[in-house]
């Protein structure tokens, strides 16, 4: 223990917290992805009158581990004529914003890697990066389907970034802070979703579904049109990284919704972290529910929906909130 104290004394408490936190985040990311793949397959199964994975471990619980091990053991195939630096880079880049976003999410009153006073800006700035990796993947793959998927993804992310931001701003106004922890604490009197921000929540949730490329907004990887979209040419672990990033993005999107609108870790009786995960996973379940219920929207409908409906409504909501607060 003496050694640890020394280290802490030398490098400072914050750094140790950060390193431990990062390790924790990595574990959470992987475990979360494993759980979500299992949940997705079970949810889809039960919604479709099937049972889903069952034979691999009790209730198919070992299924995601088998998948992960298998993907680890797959050949890393690099197709001819790809743009090699870009092709290799994309799956790595897709993972960075995911990790950074986790740092500022308050899982509990004290369980937060680092409470930055511009927390939400960090998340929004880094989550915009993921579209870059999709673009790189689509361009570097030298595949027409990938390219179409990537261009779709860029247009879609630009369109939905704006309502996403606009729907979060009223909450920031009300909490008077950009720090996620302060925002949660501001909800001690009641969740923001019930305090005049129901529409903001709705808009956020729709935009987040689009940002995470989930049905009905899964155009970048629309299976019936674009085979597998931007990751058509990726195999093995590289594909697994995209997969991992997708599920982690879903988790982050739900976690932000929980933090901003559903009172984060606040809740009676149970410890905060349990409440946090209950709320977050419920939202994740709703996103999955969307996927297995709705057909896909068309590309122009998707953009129209954002520019003509979501953004004006979000903007009006922002002005009204601002006006009321000022008065």
């Amino acid at each position: 223990m003496c050694g640890l104290d020394n280290i802490i004394a030398i490098v400072g408490k914050e750094i140790v917290r950060l390193i431990l936190g990062l390790i924790g985040v990595l574990i959470v990311v992987v475990v979360n992805a494993l759980i979500l793949t299992w949940v997705e397959r079970k949810v889809s199964g039960h919604m479709q009158k099937r049972i889903g994975p069952k034979e691999v471990g009790p209730y198919g619980l070992i299924q995601p581990i088998a998948d992960g091990l298998k993907l680890l053991g797959k050949e890393l195939l690099t197709p001819a004529n790809v743009d090699k630096p870009l092709y290799y880079l994309a799956p790595v880049i897709v993972f960075i914003p995911v990790l950074v976003s986790f740092i500022v999410i308050p899982f509990d009153g004290f369980l937060q890697v680092k409470d930055i006073n511009v927390g939400i800006l960090v998340i929004l700035a880094f989550s915009s990066l993921s579209v870059l990796s999709i673009l790189i993947a689509g361009w570097g793959s030298n595949n027409k389907y990938s390219l179409i998927g990537a261009t779709r993804s860029v247009a879609q992310n630009i369109a939905y970034e704006i309502p996403l931001l606009l729907s979060l701003l009223p909450v920031v106004f009300m909490a008077n802070s950009l720090s996620l922890k302060d925002i949660v604490e501001a909800q001690r009197d009641g969740w923001f979703v019930w305090r005049w921000q129901f529409f903001a929540f709705l808009i956020y949730f729709i935009a987040a579904t689009a940002e995470t490329n989930r049905t009905p907004f899964d155009l970048p990887e629309a299976e019936s049109e674009l085979v597998a979209g931007f990751h058509t040419e990726y195999s093995g672990m590289r594909f697994a990284l995209f997969f991992l990033a997708e599920y982690t993005n879903i988790f982050i999107a739900s976690a932000i919704a929980t933090t901003f609108f559903l009172g984060g870790y606040l809740g009676p009786v149970l410890p905060g972290i349990v409440w946090f995960f209950i709320k977050t996973y419920f939202l994740v379940f709703v996103i999955m529910w969307f996927r297995w219920t709705f057909p896909r929207v068309r590309f122009d409908q998707l953009l129209n929906f954002s520019w003509k409906i979501l953004i004006p409504v979000a903007f009006a909501n922002l002005i009204v909130t601002g006006g009321i607060l000022k008065l």
Binding site: S44, Q48, K49, R50, P216, A222, T293, F294, R296
Partner: peptide
């Protein structure tokens, strides 16, 4: 047809 439009679940219902 609905699967072509992106909705997979009806496929399983009709198959049932």
């Amino acid at each position: 047809f609905v699967a072509d439009l992106g909705g997979l679940t009806p496929f399983l219902y009709t198959f049932d």
